[in-house]
Design a protein around this nucleic acid. Structure first.
Length: 551
RNA sequence: CCCCGCGUAGCUCAAAGGAUUAGAGCAGUCCCGUCCUAAGGGAAAGACUCCAGGUUCGAGUCCUGGCGCGGGGACCA
């Protein structure tokens, strides 16, 4: 049992003895904001003082008196208005340092078992062939990949899935555009087709139908080429971003499945003006079209088909779809319809949404052509990073520049609450300093360098069990708990915020302290540095950010 | 008109209902020219946490009502 559980246990029983009944899980115990207040603190005494008929401090004293000795805890004090603070023993902190340093593939430092043994499919990124991979997809990828890793760190078998819209109106617009302007790139063809859509609805609608029916040779060829080119291109981006998908799904396959499914459930769907719709109002939602009056599946029907395709391809306990929040209401409707046609899968499909990438001036839209594409941003960042990388110790400066660029982008996305929109700020996106991904990478590389130097000078890392508790060690101890919380809440930012704090503490310490200094404390300091290195490494991994050893 | 989300330094974000000073970074001012990596460290400055009520021992955080911004609301995704 770890220290935190031991404290919770002790508190629960001590509280019981003074008439406050709280289960171990319900005992509020938090990390202190200030180490002067110890490592853990609880405000239970303040909360239950009134009911217990005594002052908060009085109750706190009574609780403390009933706590007895707790494994790993050195000191317990009542402070302030009635807070109970817990200070960890140097040995408990030393233990965390050892565990961090012992990090290995079987026993990852910071991992937990809260989702032990589950199989979860995570669907994210979802770019559309024929359209640009824009920064919204970059955002979805960063969030989805990190979620996948967080789940893996909590004992889950994760299946990464990517669902791509290779049929639909956007494809028709692009192909129509390409037919008009053969010289245009696919992106340009899409913009042109979109611009001209209002005045050429019928012609583009006809192309749409032809794409679905695969009956026109010329369109088929164009379609095949454009699709293949897009997909191939996306793969290079996934590689750069550090994502490897296990399963790919396409709307061209889910469409027919969806149509069949909708047609098979007339009790769920209604006919309306020639289209097949789902009356969401019955469930406090809104009506949506599943099959158009032309007989084509909309995204709604395709998503039902996708559920079946997923089930078909790989059994799982839960399937999570990651998208931007603009699809929230849409998903409520689709998931309700899915529940009605496949009641046996109830609760197995979840929608996790994140905010949208926005410009200060407003929404970006590929239809308007004012998108920042994922690759142009990455390319721009890589350029900025390249000049710096040239002065670095890295052998391969091109790779380093790319790794730094990925870190910069992902960090910006993952440092904030997922549900909030991101205001895209070019200057900040291109910044490699301060509160940024490269800052974390740099701290990691620095720690690696120190450990290397110690090795070269024959200084062996050794934890001093009795070392005075210091900020770094106390922070390290929190890592597994932070990861657990992040996994539980599905919020990567907890990890981001934490490793930023850790990196900051390390950099400050580094600036003021010669680590490999030949003193008797050197072995302990090297061990501490090595533990920081391992923690930053795993923390960055959880964010999907590469952690080069040299910069 | 209805539904959902968000309003915290000039800007981008933190803050588990908790502890005199609501934390970072960027931008602007100033200091440290390297000793294990300066993509670093430090100093000063910058906030009636959108407004008005309420709940609570305690509210940036919860509730109610406004205001502002974003998203969604039948054949786009």
């Amino acid at each position: 049992m770890d220290v935190r559980d031991a404290i919770r246990n002790a508190l629960s029983s001590a509280l019981g003895r003074v008439g406050v009944s709280l289960t171990k899980e319900d005992v509020p115990l938090e990390h202190t904001a200030d180490f002067a207040h110890g490592d853990y603190a609880t405000g239970v005494a303040l909360k239950y003082a009134k009911g217990a008929g005594m002052s908060p401090r009085e109750l706190a004293e009574k609780v403390v008196a009933g706590l007895g000795a707790i494994d790993g805890v050195e000191k317990i004090e009542v402070a302030g208005a009635g807070f109970i603070n817990f200070f960890l023993l140097p040995q408990a902190l030393a233990d965390s340092i050892e565990r961090a340093r012992a990090d290995n593939a079987e026993e990852k430092w910071g991992a937990n078992k809260i989702n032990g043994g589950k199989k979860i499919m995570v669907e994210y990124t979802d770019p559309n062939p024929f359209k640009e991979f824009h920064i919204g997809h970059l955002m979805s990828n960063a969030i989805g990949e990190s979620l996948a890793r967080l789940l893996e760190f909590s004992g889950t078998n994760v299946l990464r899935a990517n669902y791509q819209g290779d049929v639909g109106l956007h494809v028709a617009k692009t192909i129509w555009g390409k037919l008009q302007k053969t010289e245009a790139s696919w992106g340009e063809a899409y913009v042109y087709g979109s611009e001209q859509y209002e005045s050429n609805k019928e012609a583009i609608g006809a192309v749409n139908k032809l794409v679905y029916e695969k009956s026109d040779e010329k369109i088929n060829t164009l379609y095949k080429d454009g699709r293949a080119e897009s997909l191939e291109h996306f793969e290079t981006l996934y590689k750069t971003l550090g994502t490897k998908f296990d399963h790919y799904f396409f709307e061209s396959e889910t469409g027919p499945l969806g149509v069949t499914l909708v047609r098979a459930h007339p009790e769920v769907f209604d006919d309306s003006e020639g289209a097949t719709v789902f009356r969401g109002e019955k469930f406090g939602l809104h009506t949506r079209v599943f099959i158009t009056s032309q007989g084509l599946p909309t995204y709604e029907a395709k998503d039902l088909g996708l559920a079946e395709a997923k089930k078909e391809k790989a059994p799982f306990d839960t399937s999570i779809t990651v998208t931007a929040s603009e699809q929230n209401d849409y998903f409520s409707v689709v998931l309700k319809a899915l529940e009605l046609v496949h009641p046996e899968w109830q609760g197995q499909f979840e929608h996790v949404s994140h905010g949208m990438m926005r410009f200060a001036e407003g929404k970006m839209s590929s239809r308007k052509g004012n998108v920042v594409t994922g690759e142009s941003l990455l390319a721009e960042l890589t350029e900025v990073a390249r000049s710096r990388a040239k002065e670095s110790r890295a052998e391969d400066t091109d790779t380093l520049a790319e790794q730094v660029a990925v870190a910069a982008v992902k960090y910006q996305v993952l440092k904030q609450q997922a549900r909030k929109d991101i205001i895209f700020n070019r200057e900040q996106a291109l910044s490699l300093e301060g509160d940024s991904g490269p800052y974390l990478q740099y701290a990691h590389a620095r720690a690696c360098a120190v450990v290397e130097k110690a090795k070269a000078e024959g200084v062996e890392a050794k934890v001093n069990e009795n070392a005075e508790p210091q900020e770094l060690a106390r922070l390290l101890h929190r890592f597994p708990e932070v990861v657990e919380r992040a996994a539980r809440e599905r919020e990567s930012r907890h990890v981001t915020t934490y490793i930023l704090t850790l990196a900051g503490a390390f950099n400050r310490w580094y600036a003021n302290e010669q680590i490999v200094d030949g003193s008797p404390e050197a072995p302990h300091k090297v061990a501490l540095t090595d533990a920081v290195r391992a923690t930053l490494k795993n923390g960055l991994w959880l964010l999907g950010i590469p952690s080069p050893d040299k910069m």
